[in-house]
Structures are given as C-alpha cells and as structure tokens.
Design a protein around this nucleic acid. Structure first.
Length: 496
RNA sequence: GGUCGCGUAGCCGAGUGGCUAGGCAAAGCUCUGCAAAAGCUUCUACAGCGGUUCGAAUCCGCUCGCGACCUCCA
C-alpha cells in the first residue's frame, strides 16, 4: 500500500505528505472574488481541491478546509486608477457593495453545489477580518519590513529579499522584477517597484473603507489570505492551494508577509492547479472568452454547441490531471458526456450484480479485477491522479458487463472479491471523485412511463407485428429515448 | 524583452529510460426479425534534428511551434 505523495510547487518535487499534527490536515484554498458571476475557470480549482479534501478525509484525516470569499475587492496596488474593483462595479450596477457581493456569493455557492463540491469547513470573508489584517500589518511594520506613506502601507520587498528567498515559489529573481515591472501611475509612493501594498489609503470616492492606524482605507490584495489562513489554520499549516495564476504575485507575497509576521514560512505544501483554456487561450476577462457557469449549464453561449450538465463538467475536469492545462472544446465535452453516462451505467450494473454460485472461480480474472480497483489507491496517492483512477474504472467496465450478461458464461470471481470491488468502486465514484448520476429523481417517473411502452412493444413483437414495435422504438428514438433489447429478453433504455 | 512550462495516434488526454493508460470517433466480427446496446478485434502515437545509453517518446543540447506568468485573474 502506497502513501500519499503530492507535488509541492514550492520545492518543485513530489513529496510524501506528512501532516503537522498526526491525523489532522489543514487546507487553505484561495476563493473567488465575488465581483462577478462565477465562470468555467472557477470550476477547476474548486473541483480539484474538493477531491483533495475528500481524499484526505478518505485516508482518515480530520480535515479543516478553509476557502475564503474575497468581498473587499482585490486592490491593484500598481493599478492605473486606484479604484477598488468591487466598488467600481457596484456603482455601475447601482448596488450596495454588500448587496452585489451577496448576490455573486450566492450564485457561486449554487454553482459549487451543482458541481457536488462539499462546503468548506470555514468560508471567511475579507470584510469580516479587517481587524486581523490590520493587526498583521502592524506586526510587519514593527518588524521593520513595511513602511507607511500618505496613509498607505507597503511591504519592503528588497529588504525581505536580503534575508529570505523572495521569488522561490514562483521561480523569480528579484532583480528581474525591478527591471521589467512596467511603469504605472501611482508608483511614486513606493520605494521600490517590487514593493506591494498591505494597506491602501482610500480616495474620497471609494465606497469600501475602514478606519486604521494609517487613516481610512482598505486592505491590500494579499494580506487577507495571510491573516485568515493564520487565524483558522495556525501560523504554519499543511496545504495551501489555488490556481497557477496566483503563484505570483499573490502567493509569493503571502509567504513574505506571513514569514515576517509569524517568524517562519506559513505553509508546508503549495499546490497549484493549471488553467482551463479555450482554443488554446486562457479564459479571462481580458480575453473576452469567459463562459459563465450559468451559460455552461444552459448552453447559451456562442462557443457552446449544447448545454452541459455540471456532473459532465466535473467528470471532464477529473479526466485530466490537475497540473495539466485543459483545453475546452465541444468535442471533448461531448466525449466526456458519453463516457460519463457509460460509467454511470457500469456503476448501476455493478451494484445490481449478484454472486452466482453455479459458476466456477476464475482466479486470474479475480486477481486482475481486484488489482484494477486496488491500483486506484496508488494513483490517488501519486499526486491525486484522478485521470488514471477513471481509466481503471473503465477497465472494469467490460468485465462487469461480461459477468452480468453472461459473456463469462461459466466462470466468475470470488464472492468476497465481488463485494470488495462493489464497495471500492462506489467509494471512488461517489465519495472520492464526488460524482453522482444524472437526474436520478426524474428517471423514476420516466421508468414507469417507459415500462408501459416497453410492454406494448413486447406484445407487438410477440405477435410479429414489427411495424408496430418499430413504430414505438423509432418514435421514442426521435425524442431521444433509445431502447435496447437485452440478451435475456428484457428491454432497457438510455437517454440521449 | 525576462522567467517558467508544454508539443503524445482523427480528436481529448494519462504516463514515462525497456512492459501498447483510458475516453470519444472509425472499421470488422458475435448476438439480433431489423436496429441499438453489449462483448471481442483492429487503428501501436509521442514536434524536428543531433547527442548520452545495450535500449529514449521518456535524459541532455539545439531548432521550430504554442502557452502561462511578469498587471486584476481560478
């Protein structure tokens, strides 16, 4: 039995996972900025880390999963217009900032529920932790690594770099940063281009503002995650996750701030998921190719050929390793949809499969199938390789069908092996990958209606009235219900 | 421009110094009144050029192509 190893972005190596407190695991994941509707890009990290926390729990860890909501607006400390993103949008929509933040938070939650993502244990908001952020900034100033100017506070990056490895996480050299960072307005205050804001003085038009030792203002972009992760997970915790695009400057800055405030690095393992691309380009506001979750589920977007069920998206994402880019296309999603429906059928078949005492044991088959399901543990332990787990579930498919439909007419596997495979398949499908079949409730009613039609068709076939039987089948096919005559004389159906 | 990463069969995508991942699509067979489904079989790929090695898609170098980050971003 292998042990969990994960790729640590900080060391750029796969490392054995050892939690700080045996039996407990602390996980912090950067949550969304709720200044707009969630899009397809949001699906990736939250599904990825949902599986991470599910698997940690499966391994027996007591997990505290913290995922923040950024509702104060990331301030662009090198921004052109020095306007808080959240409040700018709020003015345009003529909404109270908190009203808008509430709306998009709620939509985000609904999306996550549709993806079957378990809720984090704590979901702290930036606006709810201004006090903690101010306290942390004061510590950094006291330590001599930040300076105040005109009511704003900046982190002194070159000074930090003298004593600590600034840039290690993102593989950057400070000198390059100093040379290449572009000249932007509002830079004058900072001593160095690489410095970043801990606290920003609020201009009069800025709606979101809080009193601080440096006047009215709002927190800098990075400090919220440092303050909130420390509060709920401690000044050193196990895993910090987020999208690759956050590695620099966000996570690099988090490390710097926390290292000064806490006296040591805050995180043991950094995990970064790769991006979703559309036609080879990252999805992002600046590319104008964002597909919102609501558009994805309704199919109402020029790029989309059809609507896609949230479970199909989840399956699609898990079919690719989280550190690879995932290029979106209708073809790929349609393939994923078929594959997902197919594996759901296998799950049903397996659940109903009964041990047959009349058949003789085929030890080789027994060993192979048990091995397929056991390998899933090794794959998950190897940096959460859900793609290989799913591949092995597909390896089981033809074997399960053969055991069920009698292609393996004479032989079988041990009863205990069958029960073991049933149990583990279900654990992987439902608990670890977090999948659930499509529309379980609806299909019950359909079942009853179709049972009637199937009976009528059976009757027609008995009378050799194939015109009538084909009419039923063809008309059903037109509406997307495909009938299948099974070998044992029964009839099943699938929905297109 | 700087830094980092990627280029795998028709498509999507794992993996990796020797043992054809998997899915979708396609073809053949079996089954079947006909279909569909299912089962079996087939399609044996790793950008190009050098090098290291008994052996490279996997390691190294160069070239070409693509992307990410450097600025809000999941």
């Amino acid at each position: 039995m292998s042990e969990l190893h994960l790729y640590n972005s900080f060391t750029r190596r796969k490392e054995k996972f050892e939690s700080i407190t045996p039996g407990y695991a602390g996980l912090y994941v950067c949550g969304p900025t709720v200044s707009g509707e969630s899009h397809m890009g949001h699906a990736r990290p939250y599904i990825t880390f949902d599986v991470v926390q599910r698997y940690l729990k499966h391994l027996g860890y007591k997990v505290r999963y913290v995922r923040n909501i950024t509702d104060a607006g990331h301030f662009e400390e090198e921004g052109r217009d020095a306007i808080d993103k959240v409040s700018e949008k709020a003015l345009l929509e003529k909404l109270e900032p908190m009203e808008m933040v509430h709306k998009y938070t709620s939509m985000f939650h609904k999306g996550m529920a549709l993806f079957n993502c378990e809720e984090p244990n704590i979901e702290p908001t930036a606006t709810g932790h201004i006090i903690e952020q101010i306290a942390m900034i004061e510590k950094i100033i006291a330590a001599g690594y930040a300076y105040e100017i005109n009511g704003s506070v900046y982190f002194d990056v070159p000074k930090y770099a003298e004593n600590f490895a600034y840039g290690k996480l993102s593989g950057r050299v400070l000198e390059d940063q100093l040379e290449t960072t572009r000249d932007l307005d509002g830079q004058d205050e900072k001593r160095n281009k690489a410095d970043f804001a801990l606290w920003k003085n609020a201009p009069p038009e800025h709606i979101m503002r809080w009193a601080s030792p440096w006047g009215e203002g709002f927190p800098g972009w990075h400090i919220e995650c440092s303050a909130m992760s420390r509060k709920y997970l401690g000044d050193k915790f196990d895993i910090h996750g987020g999208g690759m695009d956050l590695q620099f400057p966000h996570h690099e800055s988090e490390i710097a701030q926390s290292t000064i405030a806490n006296g040591h690095a805050p995180v043991n393992y950094w995990m970064h998921n790769n991006m979703i691309t559309i036609n080879g380009k990252k999805m992002g506001k600046s590319y104008n190719n964002v597909i919102k979750l609501s558009e994805l589920f309704s199919g109402n977007h020029p790029i989309l050929a059809q609507a896609y069920h949230p479970m199909v998206i989840r399956f699609y994402i898990l079919q690719t390793h989280y550190r690879s880019t995932l290029d979106f296309s209708n073809e790929a999603l349609q393939a994923a949809e078929k594959a997902f429906i197919s594996i759901c059928e296998t799950r049903d078949t397996l659940a109903k499969l009964q041990f047959d005492t009349a058949k003789e044991l085929n030890q080789e088959l027994d060993t192979t199938l048990v091995n397929y399901i056991n390998e899933c543990d090794d794959f998950m332990n190897d940096d959460f390789n859900t793609a290989r787990v799913i591949a092995n579930l597909f390896l089981l498919k033809p074997n399960i069908n053969s055991l069920d439909k009698g292609d393996f007419a004479k032989y079988s596997i041990k009863e205990e092996s069958l029960n073991y495979i049933k149990s583990k398949f279900e654990t992987y499908f439902t608990n670890i990958l977090g999948l659930k079949p499509l529309d379980a409730a609806q299909s019950e009613k359909l079942d009853q209606v179709l049972a009637l039609l199937i009976e009528m068709r059976k009757d027609a076939r008995k009378r050799k009235d194939f015109a009538a039987s084909d009419l039923i089948r063809n008309k059903l096919a037109e509406t997307g219900v495909l009938l299948k005559d099974e070998k044992d004389g029964s009839v099943s159906y699938t929905l297109e």
